[in-house]
Amino acid sequence: MLLDIGTEEIAHVEMLATMIAQLLDGAPANDQEEAAKNPLIEAVLGGMNPQHAIVNGLGAQPNDSVGYPWTARYTIASGNLLADFRDNLNAESQGRLQAVRLYEMTEDPGVRDMLSFLIARDHMHQNQWMAAIEELEQTQGVTVPSTFNTEFEKQDVAFSFMNVSKGDESSTGRWASGPSLDDKAPLNISLALKRRDNILNSHQVHHIYMAPLRLI
């Protein structure tokens, strides 16, 4: 499946590069101003990326929307399939979110048609990664990495929720009580919570922390 989607993403790079070139091909004509007599100058004044014309001959570049070059640091491949597939799910989620926002930024039916395809594929890819994640979680467990002997973890904090903010609101969530999601132990609220409340409730510390907030 990795190869299936990976190969499909090559096709999406091709689709987007083609669409960008089509959008750049033939600058808009507008004769209202002197500068507008040169459509290229008008487009640059209107906010196009001048490098699209100067560097790329009205084609796409491997950069983002503000010209920052693509970097391999955007990617991760750790060899741990569960950690990696979770990142894949996030990548498809962020990617679909941005494609949907771009869909809302244009009314061109042709551009929307292409984006509706990419949005649909990102939808399916999220489903595929979710299914793969679920399969791995059922066989190896939900915590990454699953191979480390948990007895070597400091046991008294391994299932403790630590509330380090004022009040108890965050302690009421599912993450703070009930069985842990890896079904290894019941969750508990850390004893550090009580120590924290004692500190925050003391008048002296309260004064120190509140004073700078008033300045803002």
């Binding site: 790079v13 987007l16 590069a17 669409m19 960008i20 959008l23 750049l24 906010g47 196009m48 990326n49 699209h52 796409a60 570049q61 491997p62 950069n63 983002d64 929307s65 010209g67 990617g95 941005q98 494609a99 771009l102 930024m105 551009v111 990419l118």
Partner: peptide, 8 residues
């Protein structure tokens, strides 16, 4: 086209 560079 410049905006579309983001998802490329």
């Amino acid at each position: 086209a410049k905006k579309l560079q983001e998802i490329l």
